[in-house]
Amino acid sequence: MFFETWLPDFSFLFLSILVEGAPFILLGTIISGFIDVYLPSGAMDRILPRNRSLAVMMSGMLGIIFPVCECAVVPVIRRLVKKGLPPACAITYMLAAPIVNPVTFLSTYSAFKKIPLEMAGSRLLFGYVIAVMVGLILLRLNVRRILKPRIAGEIEEVEARRAGDHDHDHDHDHDHDHDHEDEDKGNRLIMALRAAMRDFVDVGIYFVIGITIVAIVNTPPPVDQETIPLRDYIDGTAESTWGAPAALMGLAFLLSLCSTSDAFIAATLDAFGQGARLAFLVFGPMMDVKLLFLYSTILSRRFILALAVGLFIAIGVLSVAVEPLFEKLEKQNDPPFSQRMEEQGLPRS
């Protein structure tokens, strides 16, 4: 039984998530590799406003310019934090970018036929508000409470060096560039790609742990065929005001879908209200099983736990609050049945 069915099914699921997610991780790590080599330390300080709260608010919108999904964003912010981006801004970008970006907006718009603009707009707005709220709270915390001790130590070291060397940075840089310009170009490319691969393997190891758990949860257990699938438990909560968003956030956590296409899954969960589905769409890109492990490449375990609980509560409360509004909107925008059949656009096998 184990070798005949469980292992092939597990392998099938594992590989499907791997081939879906790995290209996005690669994209993020290549960007991070080039940031490592080509972006000078402190450049982010010059890009973002000096006012920390404004910087956090702006970070929440960076996904519009640099649209990356949740797998790609982690290696990017790892590197940006090491380059001097304040952790509060980095985490705001990390949480917001998979949602506040044009690709996710368009996919959500396409998936929800009845109230497309309202759903896509609410998702974007909720994602932004939640991410900025987290960022503003983090401004008050010490980096050592947020980041892994090794990374916090590296940042403190870089900051200390920058504070001490500030006066004669420019001259030194200028001379150096003229001395080794040609040699640098080749070396820098090698170093960028070397850093990219190093990040890819670093993140890949945690990604494997995450997708192994996702694949196990989605594979029928090898011993008890009567076990009820997760989806059936979750469907049973659809009528519950608080249970529905909680269950869908749990489902999003376990399914670990890509934010660029999770809206198509949410659209089929129509036993649930739009508020609960919104919770699924906002919580999933911010916290899921694979992200739990990806986050642990940069964030401290205690902070990840606090973040998960905080997001769960905040998103749950917001989704319950907007449910009556969505019910009203749905009734106003109900299209004729024939149109709905044609517009379903359900993907085929």
């Binding site: 000078p40 330390s41 060397d165 840089d173 560039d177 640098d184 820098r188 070397r194």
Partner: peptide
Amino acid sequence: HASRHVSCGHDHSHE
């Protein structure tokens, strides 16, 4: 390029 030693001066402004 596994065995190639590369070094670059970027960020020397800080180092």
